[in-house]
């Protein structure tokens, strides 16, 4: 059943790239003060080696976001390989529960069980059985895997809405930005620069939207972001938003990018969600805001993820 009464929650996912720490801080300050966004995710998800750069700025960023009325969720690492990385999650899970925390690895979901928490798109929630299991352990929002098409999303949403009287778990879909496609123990940024991971010189900071990777025929292919591999194309589910809302999926995630105005992009998605735009208008307006960027929506349409239909 259409979930008209529930207002749309616009979510800003965590910054996935290795931006200059001051740029990172100022980005969030501007989001806090200017963006029409309900919930903002903060924290390093991709590489624990980057965390020390951002850690000093997190308290002021969180404070600014909260004082401007944004809900803050603290994001955790996507791939947890050692004790130090596990401790960083444990610290947040053991905290005084002041903040909502997003699990991006199943270990984090396990540590957060029993308290309300968020599940990020890198945890594999492909079906109702898994959704139910995590919901019963306190997942209040689940950002679904990028691979899921509209048939799967509709099925998950109808299931979640039917049982939300008992366990309120809101579903979320990423609607803008480069898709996180894979994560590895290896760093491809370092490898491309002929460096070892342990002495990477943080070369991933040279590509604030990821490093372009082309095929041998010079066709754009994917983007490398340290240990993460992302889509070359930016997902754009703007025209699918009405369908998502009709399914009862009312959390829409925008993934931050550099060099585009995320405040304006958020405003655009708000207008789409509020049904203030005519058909086809959203794509043209988003294209204007993003410039030389390729869009994709293939996953939503049930086909190859890179395609745009």
């Amino acid at each position: 059943m259409a979930n008209i009464e529930t207002p749309t929650t616009l979510v800003l996912g965590p910054v996935l790239f290795n931006w200059k720490p001051e740029d990172w801080r100022d980005f969030y300050f501007r989001i806090a003060e200017e963006a029409d966004i309900d919930e903002v995710f903060v924290g390093e998800v991709v590489c624990s080696k980057r965390s020390p750069f951002f850690a000093p700025h997190i308290p002021e960023v969180v404070e600014r976001l909260q004082s401007c009325g944004k809900r803050v969720v603290l994001s955790t690492l996507g791939l947890i390989m050692n004790k130090r990385e596990m401790e960083s999650v444990r610290d947040l899970a053991d905290d005084d529960q002041e903040f909502m925390v997003e699990a991006n690895d199943i270990s984090a979901a396990a540590l957060l069980a029993g308290r309300p928490h968020a599940i990020g798109p890198m945890v594999n929630v492909y079906n109702e059985g898994t959704l139910d299991y995590l919901a019963e352990r306190g997942a209040v929002s689940v950002c679904l895997p990028v691979e899921l098409g509209k048939t799967a999303l509709a099925s998950m949403a109808s299931h979640a809405n039917a049982r939300n009287a008992d366990v309120g778990t809101a579903l979320e879909v990423m609607v803008f930005g480069r898709l996180p496609l894979a994560i590895s123990a290896r760093c491809y940024h370092a490898r491309a620069h002929k460096l070892h991971k342990d002495s990477c010189q943080f070369v991933c900071d040279r590509d604030p939207n990821g490093m372009e990777v082309e095929t041998l025929d010079n066709e754009p292919f994917v983007a490398v972001n340290g240990v993460q591999t992302m889509s070359h194309a930016y997902t754009n589910l703007g025209s699918a938003v009405p369908e998502l809302l009709d399914m009862g999926i009312n959390r829409l995630r925008l993934s931050p990018h550099h060099g585009v105005d995320m405040v304006k992009i958020a405003a655009l998605f708000r207008a789409i969600a509020d049904k203030q735009l005519g058909e086809g208008e959203s794509d043209a307006r988003l294209a204007k805001l993003t410039g030389d960027v390729t869009f994709c929506n293939g996953y939503f349409e049930g086909t190859a993820g890179h395609t745009y239909i």
Partner: peptide, 19 residues
């Protein structure tokens, strides 16, 4: 070379993935 079960490269290109 990617974390197993957490790789959508194949479906990005072809629509079909391991998961």
């Amino acid at each position: 070379v990617m974390a197993e079960g957490r790789c959508a490269l194949s479906s990005y290109v072809t629509g079909q993935s391991p998961n």
